[in-house]
């Protein structure tokens, strides 16, 4: 288990983190979401020892993350960082060695990862000569080259084209299958929803929602039911007890059911008007969940 436990951090008067806690299981892909400035990067930097928490700690397998553990963590910082004048292959070998590999295995790993991320032919090129997308791949290769036990990636998908996103996603899923816990932050919530087993939403220095996407959905207030009954007269749904109409556009209505209201009663009412072409629970998207979670805290904070 990778545990983030009660992290507090203030820069001067600015309290950035106020007790951030979440856990990531081995083989789990954890999507770390939050508005700009919510403290995602600070949380990750604390895990990597680049910032010091005022309180709280990060643990891996029950042991506080120290330098020895960190060498087994693959990290991709938000501000990308590579030696611009160093060749791709040498650079990857160097990072592999810094993470504890011997010279020969490090060179082999560098070659393997350059190949796997489609950089095989660019191994002898200086990083500064590569396109931004390819530099991003080198950055990822630098995080993966030591076959780390844990991956912490800050905005790994930003700046990638759809093909790049797919190949990065595939690489991360493969790491998960190896049993590596992967934490990554992203603003692309559709991507997080697609890839992640678990999600944590950070707002105002706290995790305001966390769990699997399914758990978040079930916890979300007011699930909505969409019914399309083309022949129904306007206002049919409002007549059903325990139902609130959220929106009604001709035959297409979105409903919220009160507690204890049976969706089958609604279906029966709809069928009594004639044909029903659509009847389904609408799953809130992560975007909606995110908005809900972030706004809730704003209201509390206000």
């Amino acid at each position: 288990m990778l545990e983030f436990d009660g992290l507090y951090k203030a820069y001067g008067d600015n309290q950035v983190l106020e007790g951030v806690s979440f856990t990531v299981a081995p083989g789990q892909m954890f999507g770390f979401c939050g508005s700009n400035g919510a403290g995602k990067t600070t949380t990750m930097r604390i895990a990597m020892g680049l910032a010091r928490a005022d309180a709280g700690e990060v643990r891996w397998l029950g042991r506080p993350v120290d330098e020895a553990v960190r060498r087994r963590i693959g990290y991709m910082p938000e501000e990308r960082g590579l030696y611009p004048k160093m060749k791709v292959g040498e650079q990857l070998t160097y990072f592999a060695r810094l993470h504890g590999l011997d010279a020969a295995p490090a060179a082999r790993a560098a070659e393997t990862w350059a190949e796997r991320l489609g950089l095989g032919e660019r191994r002898g090129d200086r990083v500064e000569k590569l396109s931004l997308g390819n530099q991003q791949r080198v950055q990822l290769a630098a995080a993966l080259v030591s076959e780390p036990d844990v991956l912490i990636l800050d905005e790994p998908f930003s700046g990638l084209d759809p093909v790049g996103v797919d190949s990065l996603a595939e690489a991360l899923l493969e790491q998960c299958r190896r049993g590596v816990p992967v934490v990554f932050s992203s603003h692309q919530l559709d991507l997080v929803e697609r890839l992640c087993d678990a999600v944590g939403i950070l707002a105002r220095g706290k995790i305001v929602a966390s769990g699997t996407v399914g758990e978040l959905r079930s916890g979300a207030a007011g699930r909505q039911l969409r019914v399309v009954a083309p022949d129904a007269p306007p206002g049919w749904a409002a007549a059903v007890p325990g139902v609130r109409v959220v929106s009604e556009q001709r035959a297409d209505v979105v409903l919220e059911l009160g507690p204890g209201t049976d969706d089958q009663q609604v279906l029966a009412a709809a069928l009594s008007t004639g044909r029903v072409t659509h009847f389904a629970w609408r799953e809130p998207t992560l975007v909606e969940l995110f908005r809900g979670a972030v706004t809730d805290t704003r209201e509390v904070a206000a």
Partner: peptide, 12 residues
């Protein structure tokens, strides 16, 4: 080049 962040994640 910010590579220092990657370096300091592995050393003092």
């Amino acid at each position: 080049s910010r590579v220092v962040e990657l370096l300091l994640a592995t050393m003092r």
